[in-house]
Structure formats: C-alpha cells, structure tokens
Design a protein around this nucleic acid. Structure first.
Length: 468
RNA sequence: GCCCCCAUCGUCUAGUGGCCUAGGACACCACCCUUUCAAGGUGGCGGCACGGGUUCGAAUCCCGUUGGGGGUGCCA
C-alpha cells in the first residue's frame, strides 16, 4: 500500500467513543478510496489503566462498524508505549538542534513567579540558563518567534501567533515523554501523511507542527472535524452522555444504521441520506465536511435504525433478534421461547421495532406463562360494561370457531362486537387486554392464531373470572 | 483572562452573488389508511443571530457585535 497514510489514535479506556467512531469512519473512507492505509495506534501511555482487553475492545468496535483488521488497508495495532525510546531520542534530537532546553522550575515555582509578576503561563525563564538534564528537570520546547499557519483541509488556513504559545513541556521531570511529543514522533515514524481528528485538537496543532518542522519533517495534512455535541451543545463525554459504541451495539442498533448516521454528522451524503457504505466511501471528500459542531441526536439515530430494520428480510430480522430474545434479561425465560411462533409473528413486529432489543418486549406475552397485566389498560378497558360483555360473549364465540385462523377470529369478534354496537377497533380491546395484558401490541388475530386456541381461551376465561 | 473555531427551520443539513417565494431529512401537528400500536401515504408548522458595508443584486463576500464551543497541564 503506497498511498496516503491515515491513522486513529484512541487510548484504551474500556469503551469506544462514538465520536472516535465517526473520526475512524472518515479516515477509513479516505484510506480505502485513495488506496491508502488506515493505521491503528493505541495510545496506552496512561499506564495505570491500560489492559489488553481494552485493545481488543477497540478492535471489536472497529470491526462492528466495518473497519476490519483483516482488510489490506488496515495496519496495526501499534502501541505507543512500545515507542518510548523513539520519543526520548527525538527529544534529544531537539536538544541537539537547539529546539529544546531543560528547566528546573516546578509547576509551583511557575505559579509563584507568575503571581509575583502578574503573568500567566510559563515565560521561557530557563531558555538561556544552560541547564542540563537532571532529576526534576523538564525538557521544554523552544517556541520560535513568528507565527504558525496550520493548513487545514476542513477549515482552511488557521494562523497562530507563536508569542502566545508557551514553551511547552516535552519530557517530564522523571524523563517520561508527554503526549504531544509521543503523538508527533509516532506519526512521524509511522509515516502518517494525513491527520484527521476532532476539532478539540486544533489549538494544539501549531505546537505539533513546530515539532514536525524542528525534527526536520514536513508537517502532515491536517483536517479537524467538527465536534459531536449533546443537547447542551457541549462535546459529548462519558460523564454526561451515552458515548460508548458498544452500548448501542448491545441495545440492538444495526451497525449499518450507526455507520450511516455517523457519516451524516458533519458531512452530507450525495442524494438520499440513507445509503450504503460503498456509496459514501466513494463520495466522501474532506472539502465537503462542515465546520460547525453536530448534535448527536438519538432520535434521528433511532429513525435510521428503524429504517434499516425494516429493510431487512424477515429471516434476517428474526435472526438478528435472536440474541435479545434468548438473553438472560429477556422478559421471558429462554426455554419458553418458541422459534416457530416468533417467525410467524416476525413480519408483524418488524415495523414496530426501533431497535432489535424491542422485539422481545413486543412478543413477550406469547412466551410468558401468563400475560403481565397493565393495570391502567385493564381499568380503562374493562371500566366499560360492554367490554366485559364482549369478553364473555367472545369466549363463547371463540369456543365455537372451527378454523383457528386470524381471519375467522377476526370475523367472529367483528360479529360479537356488532352485537354490542361496537366497531372492531373497540371490541378487540377486550380480547387484547385479556390475552396480552395491554391495549397496544402487534396485530391481535395473528397473535391469537399463533398462541393457539387452548391458551387463548384459558387467558380469556381467566380474565373473565377476575372480572366476575 | 488569552488564543482558536463556529453561526440556515427545534435537530442534521442543501445552498459557494441572481435558478431562493430558502430545498430535504428527523422531530412535531393534522388528515388518510387501519384491528390497537406501529409502518405507509398526503399535507402543515418552522430558519438565513444582529448591525454595518461591498454590489445592479446577498443566506452566500468583508468588518463589527452578540451568542455558542474548544484549547490553554510535569492529562491523553
């Protein structure tokens, strides 16, 4: 693979952020279409929490959204922690080139001096003190005079006055490299040509660009993507928002829907909003990416998901629902689940699901020994005396039904309702609440057919007995 | 505080000086369909933040204001 080299550099935190997923998708689209490479680098230098399984979690999350480690465009994962020697070497190269110097002031020293002088930030006090390395000595970058222009493919040229950028720390007092240094050195050694990342990194980009230059390289192509924000217009974060991609997967969102929705945040597919990945991959251009933050709208995501669920064949739908139908926290015990019954009802529940997890809740009454009675529904329905009468009469009528099919059950109840001056819409409520416990649900007569004569009548009689 | 980014319906956006009476999607509302609820269909509500310029002509270009966000660590 000789084309441009892209990368994502997540830190292993135990979950994969949806914002990171969007960034990954943009990188992936470009790497694939341009015949380039998508590099995965795990920034695991925050030693404390950094477990091997977190890395696998990232790989799994990427695979879920279609970024497969087996694809020839995929490279990695690399681990930042394994490149510590390179980071230090680069730091030394900067010292040798006069681009960095040691400083023995602690954070407290800096603060005290600033307080005394009424300043803010580090004022380059140790620039010319000729200090060498030593315990507690940090290495600082000597920010040159002038200005730095970041050429950003999304935002255009952004100019920063170097005088406003303090001599930032490269190496800590204990000699370990800081993130900014490690990040740049890794990008350089992995020959990254395009850095696409969230806008939050834009302010630090001049520092990185100065390092690239000081280290004798040309800066990569930068592209800062609009942030994903919540309803408060703040960037979505783990503390406040539902940001874990895995959570959406577990709640029954289809990866295709998630991918499609994520792609529309900051970019607009040509033609229809809903469209396959291949088409978006073919059309995606950084130049078309928007500049303003995008609200991560759960409602719209849900709409996309419903759309994708409905586009499934019935068999695909039924198969996709299985994990939730058989889950330990399903509303009914797994051993009561009946594949055939579910399959028969599947076409009717498919358009009623926003997530795959919804299916279990829609058909639960079929697999529960007894329906869970919703008190409000019961009271509302049987508060009317004719409803009670309809229930009683429909029991008699159903006992006499010859073919236990949806059509005959419907015709029968229609007749019963008519006898009480009720239209079907009203009359069916009695049977629905008696059998399913609720006033809403999938088409009733189809459900009764699937449930069977014995169980249906048993439930209707039980309801009648309760009413008596 | 300072620096940077951003600004079209509630939301995601189309729009790159005349094609805009500002288009679409989600949400919302109404109606239709209907066996409840969905789905589907039809219609509706709703926006260029404000003020100055530039121009024959500005949602589109420039400046300012306001508002929002991000950054500014011996965090990543």
């Amino acid at each position: 693979m000789t084309g441009p080299r892209f990368r994502i550099a997540p830190s292993p935190t135990g979950y994969f952020h949806v914002g990171g997923a969007r960034t990954a998708l943009f990188n992936w689209a470009l790497a694939r279409r341009l015949g380039g490479t998508f590099v995965l680098r795990i920034e695991d230098t925050d030693i404390e929490r950094s477990q091997p399984e977190w890395t696998q979690g990232i790989i799994d999350a990427l695979a879920w959204i279609g970024i497969s480690a087996d694809d020839p465009h995929f490279e990695g994962p690399y681990f930042q922690s394994e490149y510590a020697a390179e980071h230090i070497a680069a730091a030394q190269q900067l010292v040798a080139g006069g681009h960095a110097y040691y400083c023995d002031m602690t954070a407290a020293d800096v603060e005290a001096r600033n307080k005394a002088e009424g300043n803010q930030g580090y004022q380059g006090w140790s620039r010319d003190r000729g200090l060498g390395p030593g315990p507690g000595h940090v290495l600082r970058f000597r920010v040159p005079a002038g200005s730095t222009i970041v050429h950003d493919l999304v935002r255009g040229d952004v100019e920063f006055d170097n005088a406003l950028i303090e001599d930032f720390v490269l190496l800590r007092g204990n000699g370990s490299p800081m993130f900014l240094l490690a990040n740049v050195v890794d990008d350089m050694s992995m020959r990254i040509t395009h850095v696409l990342r969230a806008e939050e990194h834009l302010s630090n980009t001049p520092k990185q660009q100065m390092m690239w230059l000081a280290l004798g390289h040309e800066a990569p192509v930068w592209a800062h993507l609009p942030l994903l924000v919540n309803e408060q217009r703040k960037k979505i974060s783990k503390r406040r928002d539902k940001v874990a991609l895995e959570q959406y997967r577990d709640e029954g969102y289809l990866p295709e829907a998630m991918v499609n929705y994520l792609m529309t945040l900051g970019w607009t597919p040509k033609g229809d909003e809903i469209q396959p990945w291949a088409q978006m991959e073919g059309d995606f251009l950084l130049e078309d990416v928007n500049h303003s933050p995008a609200f991560f709208d759960l409602k719209k995501l849900a709409a996309f998901n419903g759309e994708y669920i409905r586009a499934l064949t019935v068999d695909q739908f039924a198969a996709a629902c299985r994990p939730w139908l058989l889950a330990a926290d399903a509303p009914f015990p797994a051993d009561r689940f009946d594949e055939q019954m579910f399959l028969a009802m599947a076409p009717h529940i498919q358009p009623r699901c926003v997530t795959l997890a919804d299916a279990a809740g829609v058909v639960d009454f079929l697999f529960l020994p007894d329906p869970v009675i919703d008190e409000a529904a019961w009271a509302k329905t049987f508060g009317a005396t004719e409803s009670v009468a309809v229930l009683r009469d429909s029991i008699v009528a159903y006992e006499a039904v010859v073919d236990w099919t949806a059509e005959s059950l419907k015709a029968s109840l229609e007749a019963t309702g008519e006898a009480h001056g009720l239209k079907l819409g009203k009359a069916q409520a009695s049977v629905r609440v008696a059998v399913t416990g609720r006033t809403v649900g999938p088409p009733l007569f189809e459900a009764l057919e699937v449930l069977g004569r014995a169980e249906t009548l048993r439930r209707m009689r039980a309801a009648e007995a309760t009413l008596a």
